[in-house]
Simulated scan of single mutants.
Amino acid sequence: LIITNDNPLRLMQKQNFFQKYESPTWSDFPKEAIDPVLGPRYRNVIIGIVYNKSGIKPADAPKSLADLVNPKYKGKLVMPDPTQHTTTTQWVTSLHKVMGKEKADKYIRDLAAMKPIMVESLLPAAERVTTGETPIAITYVKYAFIFGKKGAPLDYVRVPKMLGDGHYIGLAAKAPHPNGGKAFIDYFLDNESMKIMASRGEFVNRKGVYPPLPGADKIGFIEMEDLSSKEFAEKKKEYQQIFLR
């Protein structure tokens, strides 16, 4: 069994690495979240704007991605480095899916002009917001809940569509114990397991199950672009010219 995000699984799928197993649990997931071989996209790992309410009053927080590049937020934003962090490379590359290509091309340059503080990944970005060191972050939305449970005054910006990664569980074509693997998949995707996962802040796709985060049921998930190794290298080089000037 392999449980991970979409991009590496797609590469493995092209090599016929997986066998199809149609678990009875498939009917409990939306049809649009089901891959014909990998099965249900069991969770969405969503990237958005998280902010510290002690550093930015909710009334003064950005209301959209477009708001985020308002000059008044310059020096107040942290994000992972899109020239180094692959998930952020995907996120920047996929912005056209929520705003169109022309607007996305301009937005990427406007975002770079904000001179955001660059960190190595999404967790350090969230940690800087949690401590108040930087009041606004581009990071996983789930961190607003996870760090909020620990007392951090965090919230996230509600926008109708958010980009992110889909995660799947796949059964290897040459699994030594396929029946055991199928039994685990049935358990993993059932209501109890998905509720446990959601209770920890994960955006699972089982129908009617949501994380305890206000507005979680209103978020429209848009899966990010799948990039090849060559495309990742090209995009990282392109973003070096934009973000590191």
Score class of each variant (00 low, 15 high):
residue 187 Y to V: 12
residue 162 M to W: 09
residue 163 L to T: 10
residue 10 R to L: 14
residue 128 R to M: 15
residue 83 T to R: 02
residue 33 A to H: 12
residue 149 K to Y: 04
residue 43 R to S: 11
residue 121 S to F: 02
residue 4 T to L: 07
residue 231 E to D: 15
residue 129 V to I: 08
residue 237 K to V: 00
residue 35 D to L: 06
residue 17 F to K: 13
residue 116 P to S: 04
residue 149 K to M: 15
residue 231 E to Y: 05
residue 98 V to T: 14
residue 19 Q to D: 12
residue 69 V to K: 10
residue 52 N to P: 08
residue 98 V to L: 09
residue 106 K to I: 07
residue 44 N to E: 13
residue 116 P to W: 04
residue 93 T to G: 00
residue 54 S to G: 13
residue 182 K to L: 03
residue 141 V to H: 12
residue 24 P to C: 04
residue 92 V to W: 01
residue 226 D to K: 09
residue 12 M to E: 08
residue 133 E to C: 00
residue 131 T to P: 00
residue 191 N to W: 07
residue 170 G to E: 00
residue 87 T to D: 03
residue 220 G to A: 05
residue 70 N to F: 07
residue 124 P to D: 00
residue 53 K to F: 08
residue 5 N to P: 00
residue 22 E to H: 12
residue 223 E to W: 13
residue 119 V to Y: 00
residue 47 I to Y: 09
residue 191 N to A: 14
residue 29 F to G: 03
residue 69 V to I: 15
residue 134 T to N: 03
residue 234 E to Q: 13
residue 215 G to Y: 09
residue 211 P to A: 10
residue 183 A to G: 08
residue 71 P to L: 01
residue 59 A to S: 11
residue 20 K to W: 03
residue 134 T to G: 04
residue 157 V to W: 12
residue 217 D to K: 15
residue 179 N to L: 13
residue 112 A to L: 05
residue 140 Y to D: 12
residue 220 G to F: 09
residue 4 T to R: 11
residue 101 K to H: 03
residue 45 V to L: 12
residue 3 I to R: 11
residue 108 I to L: 00
residue 205 N to S: 15
residue 153 P to A: 07
residue 81 D to E: 04
residue 9 L to I: 05
residue 41 R to T: 10
residue 202 E to T: 10
residue 180 G to K: 13
residue 226 D to W: 12
residue 44 N to G: 09
residue 101 K to Y: 03
residue 181 G to N: 07
residue 174 K to P: 01
residue 205 N to V: 05
residue 241 Q to V: 02
residue 236 K to G: 03
residue 191 N to T: 14
residue 201 G to M: 05
residue 81 D to G: 02
residue 217 D to L: 04
residue 146 I to C: 02
residue 90 Q to M: 15
residue 47 I to N: 10
residue 88 T to V: 02
residue 139 T to H: 11
residue 153 P to T: 07
residue 14 K to Q: 13
residue 138 I to N: 06
residue 10 R to S: 13
residue 118 M to A: 10
residue 42 Y to Q: 03
residue 123 L to K: 15
residue 204 V to E: 05
residue 14 K to W: 03
residue 159 V to G: 09
residue 231 E to Q: 15
residue 157 V to D: 10
residue 244 L to R: 11
residue 137 A to M: 10
residue 171 L to R: 08
residue 208 G to E: 08
residue 137 A to L: 10
residue 153 P to V: 09
residue 245 R to A: 04
residue 17 F to A: 15
residue 31 K to T: 12
residue 61 A to S: 02
residue 106 K to Q: 14
residue 176 P to C: 11
residue 189 L to R: 05
residue 244 L to F: 02
residue 25 T to D: 08
residue 128 R to H: 14
residue 229 S to Q: 11
residue 68 L to C: 06
residue 170 G to M: 06
residue 184 F to Q: 00
residue 89 T to S: 01
residue 115 K to I: 02
residue 132 G to S: 06
residue 123 L to S: 10
residue 186 D to K: 10
residue 161 K to T: 08
